[in-house]
Computed example of a mutant assay.
Amino acid sequence: MGTHGVPANYGGFETAAENVAIFLRDHGWRVVVYCQERGRGPLRTDTWNGIERVLIPIDREGWLATSEFDARSIRHAIRHRDVCLTFGYNTAVFNIVQRVLRIPNVINMDGIEWSRARWGKLRQAILWTNEKIAGVVGDHLIADHPTIETYLAKRVNRRKLSTITYGAHPITQAPDEPVLALGLAPGKYLTLICRPIPENSILELVQGFSAERRGYELAILGTYTPETDPYHRAVVDAAGPEVRFLGSVYDPEQVASLRFHSAGYLHGHTVGGTNPSLVEAMAAGNAIVAHDNEYNRWVADGGALYFRSAADAADRIGDLLTNPTVRWRLGEASRARHRSEFTWERVAGQYMELLGRFQPAGTTTPDMVSNGPAEENAP
């Protein structure tokens, strides 16, 4: 629960939900995933790749939509009387229901979401409150990074905490046609893929890249609206002639090709835990230039050069692009780090082991086909 559902086409939580669900399915579990869709009316059920889906139509936007979806998901899920896996604590107040009914609920706590300045004071207060509630009502809490676990340990009993990261499938080959179709030359560009907000250091990276002619292009993915967003305007104004704004690219195969054929990846995230985009870059064997903080250093380790300012970024980008040996070394270190910590087999296996601890006594994992999908009005 807590994601937009499967198949994943929204973000990191959805990708995690899909891969964990598939892994559990392959190991004999009956898996039910709650999926949010636009519209009105009663929920409906179907199957996707052997996974039960409960599709809940929501005719709202933003936080109101999330709240209604989570409430309806919980109301349906408690009828299973089985272990729940909830991604995110934004509406943890609703999870009091599972606690009261003694239905085990494992909660992935994401990053320190309430600390993000982009939410504003009111939403920060709501998120902070729900984080506290999740720490009380959750049977076990998942942190996606050791630093997040350390933070949570100051608020809850450490025995109810585990660190389980995000995963990515290794990219060992990819067609170059999607890259050529975008007007890029394989091996002659860097990628920058993230939400265009200040905490992701996009301005500093664009300024650093544009400080001199590189002989490479910088391919930036994401939706930029300089006409209405001052930060977007600053980024666009700072961009030199070798910077390309490609807009949003959602097709996974196209993104995989862009990563695989790039000379390196720029990662400016300053907050949060394990970032899925960074893990995916490592899975593609990218040499990385990353913002210097404890989150990125633990994830990328020896696969990155680190910066703190636009001037630092300019130097590190120069080191990356002018030295093929450095690029090769960083790329090999990225792949090795991915293999050791961030494969979906490892990550989903950790989820399965943890969820197994909370299976109610005497329960089994019946075959979905013989039992059929659960209806909203089932007893």
Rank of each mutant, 00 (worst) to 15 (best):
G11Q: 09
L190P: 08
P57A: 07
V369E: 07
N9C: 04
G285M: 12
Y189M: 04
Q124C: 15
G318A: 07
N377K: 06
V289Q: 12
G356F: 13
L320H: 01
N323K: 12
T343E: 14
V100Q: 02
P230D: 03
D26C: 10
R102E: 02
R329N: 13
L278Q: 06
Y166Q: 03
D292P: 02
G2S: 15
I56S: 14
L184P: 04
H27V: 13
P379H: 13
P198D: 11
D46R: 05
R158Y: 01
L152W: 15
V106K: 02
L246W: 07
I107C: 00
L321S: 13
H76W: 12
P198K: 09
V33G: 05
E14W: 05
V249R: 11
N9S: 15
V31A: 05
T47C: 12
D251I: 13
S257G: 14
T147G: 10
L190F: 09
F23P: 03
I197K: 14
E61R: 14
Y250V: 09
R297P: 12
L24F: 13
V279N: 05
G41R: 00
N108F: 01
G362P: 02
I58K: 13
R123G: 06
S309T: 14
G183C: 04
I112Q: 13
V299M: 05
E294K: 15
V249D: 09
Q254P: 02
V179K: 00
G247P: 08
A181Y: 08
M109P: 11
A8S: 12
R75P: 00
A287C: 04
G41W: 00
N377G: 04
G268I: 00
E204L: 03
D251T: 10
R335M: 15
T343L: 14
D367P: 01
L266C: 01
G120T: 13
R214P: 05
L258A: 13
N90E: 15
K188H: 12
V93P: 01
G135Y: 04
C35D: 07
A174F: 13
T45F: 14
T325C: 07
P230T: 13
H267R: 00
T274P: 02
A313R: 10
E341R: 14
S370K: 06
R72Q: 01
S309G: 01
P42A: 07
P186L: 04
T129A: 15
P226E: 13
A311K: 01
E280Q: 15
K154W: 08
L101Y: 05
A333C: 06
I112A: 04
Y34W: 08
W29F: 11
G2Y: 11
G356K: 14
L205H: 08
E199L: 11
P373H: 10
N9D: 11
E242R: 13
L161F: 00
M282Y: 11
T223Y: 15
L127N: 03
T150S: 11
N130A: 12
A310C: 00
V369I: 10
G11I: 09
N95H: 15
G362S: 14
V31G: 10
P104C: 10
N130P: 03
S248R: 14
A333V: 02
A125E: 10
H140G: 00
R357Y: 11
R60S: 08
L64W: 10
I22E: 06
W344H: 00
D139W: 08
